[in-house]
Design a protein around this nucleic acid. Structure first.
Lengths: 207, 207
DNA sequence: ATTGTCTAGTTGTCATACAATCTGCCTACA
DNA sequence: TGTAGGCAGATTGTATGACAACTAGACAAT
C-alpha cells in the first residue's frame, strides 16, 4: 500500500487560496474576478488562473459566462432549498450505510468543536462542522459519494454563514451533532436515517 | 424569453468529440491520450486540449495523475457497484418528486427507443436510454440534482455496455422503462420509488 | 540484487500575442 | 428628448513557443 502524499500544484494552491478567501467572506458574493488581476496578484500565468477558476466553478463557488469575468456565486434562499433537497438523500445514504459504526475522525472533529473557546470565530466552528461531515462521508468508502459530496460541500459551507443565527448558541450545534453520531453509532439504519433527517430539518425552512 | 443557443467553444467541441469516441468504444479503456498528440490531431492548442481533458476527468471518463498522460477509465465491477450505490438515492429522489406527473420528453425518448429497427446498433438504444433518464432528471427542476446526475451519467453510460447481455432482448428494455414511466406518472411517490428501485436492481448483482 | 545515473518523453507552468466579444459611453438622427 | 448606431476599452478565448519538473525505463556500478 502506497501512502498518498499530494505535492500541491500551482493550480491547486491557487484554488485553495481563493476558496479560503471566498468562504471566509473576504471576497463577498457578486465580486468579479478578472483573470488578469489574479494573475498579477498571485504571480502566476493566466492559464494557471483559468484552471483554478474552473475548479471553483465546478464546486459551485464561482459562476462564469462566456466572455464575462468569473463571479462569486450568490447563494439565494432557493439555492439553499435546492441544496438541502439533494443533500438529504445523500446524507441519508451515508447514515444508513454507516449505521452501527463509530467513526473516529468524526468523533475527533466533534471533540475539537466542543473544545473551541467561547470567543472563537464562527468560521472555526464551521470548519470543524465540515470536517465532521466530511469524515463521515469518507468512512463510507464510496469514491463517488465522496466526489458528489465534495461538489456540494463548498456551496454548503458558503450557505452555512446564513445559519449563524440559528446556532447562536454553539452548544446546540455540538449537542445536535453528538446526537447524530450517537444515533449512527448505535444503529439501526432506520434510526440513523431519521437522525440525519432531523439534523437537516433544523435551521431550515426559515433561513 | 430568450432562446438559448449554445455557441460551442473549442474545448466544448473537443470534449464532445472525445466523449463520443470513448463512449462508442472506439478508444478502449486503458488507452493513453497524450496532450501533444490530441493537439496535433485536432489542430487546437495544447491548453485547449488540457481544458477538454479536465472536463472528461470530471465526468469520470478519464483519469489523470501528475505527469502522466490521461487514460481512458477502466470500469470495474466494483465501480459499477459503487455507481449503483450512489445512483439509487438520486433516482429515488427523482421518482418521488416527479410522482404524479408525466414527462413528455421522457415519453418521447421511450417512443424513439421502441421505434428503433431491430438491427439498430446497441449504442443507439443506449443513447435513447440516457436521454430518457436525463429528461426525467431535468423535469425535477433542481439544478444541483442535474449537475450531480450529469457527473454520473457518462460513467453510467460507459458501464452500460457491459449490461448488453442482460438486455439481449430489447423489448425487455423498452417494457421495463415503460413500467417505470407509468409508475411515476400514476403515483403515488412510494410506488414510483419502488419502481425505480426495481429498475436499478435488474441487471445488477451479477454483471 | 540493489542502487545510482542517464536519457527520452510528457506534463506543468510561463510569457506573449491576437482575435472575438461584451460593456459602457458617446454621438447622430428622428 | 429619446433612441439607435457605432466606437473604444476591457476581458476572455485561443494560439504559439518555450522551458522546467517529473516519470519511466534502460543501463552501469556497487
Amino acid at each position: 500500500m502506497t501512502l498518498p502524499l499530494h505535492p500541491v500544484s500551482a493550480v491547486g494552491a491557487l484554488a485553495d487560496a481563493l476558496r479560503r478567501r471566498v468562504l471566509s467572506g473576504e471576497i463577498p458574493p457578486g465580486t468579479t474576478l478578472p483573470e488578469q488581476e489574479l494573475s498579477a496578484l498571485y504571480g502566476v500565468a493566466r492559464p494557471t488562473v483559468r484552471e483554478a477558476l474552473a475548479v471553483l466553478v465546478h464546486e459551485g463557488l464561482l459562476r462564469r459566462e462566456r466572455h464575462r469575468s468569473a463571479q462569486v456565486a450568490e447563494v439565494t434562499a432557493a439555492d439553499l432549498d435546492d441544496l438541502m433537497f439533494v443533500r438529504r438523500p445523500l446524507e441519508e445514504l451515508m447514515a444508513t450505510s454507516l449505521a452501527g459504526r463509530r467513526v473516529g475522525e468524526a468523533d475527533a472533529a466533534l471533540a475539537r468543536m466542543a473544545a473551541l473557546p467561547a470567543d472563537a470565530p464562527w468560521s472555526e466552528a464551521v470548519a470543524e462542522h465540515m470536517a465532521l461531515h466530511q469524515a463521515l462521508v469518507v468512512a463510507v468508502g464510496s469514491p463517488r459519494l465522496e466526489r458528489l459530496y465534495g461538489m456540494l460541500a463548498a456551496e454548503t459551507r458558503l450557505g452555512l454563514v446564513r445559519l449563524r443565527a440559528v446556532y447562536s448558541d454553539r452548544h446546540v450545534l455540538v449537542a445536535e451533532h453528538r446526537d447524530l453520531l450517537d444515533a449512527i453509532g448505535r444503529g439501526p439504519g432506520e434510526a440513523a436515517r431519521e437522525a440525519v433527517a432531523a439534523h437537516l430539518d433544523h435551521g431550515w425552512g426559515d433561513h
